[in-house]
């Protein structure tokens, strides 16, 4: 038995809110992030993933060959995770990463210009349409980028890097304030 009671605190709870007019940076609800690992050269699992996630408010994000993230705003109960995990068998393995990854929403008409300061991925809507994801470096921090709307991106990062990335994002957006 641990001597300490483990309490979950929001990773970005104390982060100051940026004051830029053209851009908004917001911490997304710490719901759930499930990493899905399949075999890299296996047939496409998107159908299996769609069925496993069902109609619940969850999204599937690609993260490289045979890898996906299933994300949602509501916390996942133990039973829900077990059901999801079972639905993916035997094609893929689900790993609960809800405690380990934090999502940040960056939004604004010039959001690509701001993110282009940190990443080399072509973020033009033609090359990176809504729903596209990419694992990349943002500055020195490894992130998972998804275009969730035409002028909004979700930046998913390891929890320990969240505050540092937040500061980077704020600094990157100062020019547009």
């Amino acid at each position: 038995m641990s001597d300490f009671r483990i309490t979950l605190r929001p990773a970005l709870g104390s982060a100051p809110r940026p004051g830029s007019r053209g851009l908004s940076i917001t911490a997304m609800p710490e719901g759930h992030v499930v990493q899905v690992l399949g075999r890299p050269h296996a047939p496409d699992l998107f159908g299996v993933l769609e069925r496993a996630t069902g109609a619940a408010h969850r999204s599937v994000r690609a993260a490289g060959p045979g890898q996906w993230f299933i994300v949602g705003d509501a916390p996942l109960s133990r039973d829900e995770f077990a059901a999801l995990s079972t639905a993916l068998q035997p094609h893929a393995t689900a790993v609960d990463q809800s405690h380990g990854r934090v999502r940040i929403r960056v939004e604004g008409t010039i959001v690509e210009r701001m993110l282009a300061k940190g990443t080399a991925v072509d973020l033009d809507p033609g090359a990176f349409p809504v729903g596209t994801s990419a694992m990349t470096l943002l500055g020195h921090v490894s992130v998972h980028l998804t275009r969730i709307e035409i002028a909004a991106f979700e930046v998913m990062v390891l929890r320990g890097f969240a505050e540092s990335l937040w500061e980077d994002l704020v600094r990157m957006s100062v020019e547009f304030a």
Binding site: P40, P65, Q67, M135, S142
Partner: peptide, 9 residues
């Protein structure tokens, strides 16, 4: 080469 900060392949 290992794509460390990308697809990790």
């Amino acid at each position: 080469w290992h794509h460390t900060s990308g697809c990790r392949r």
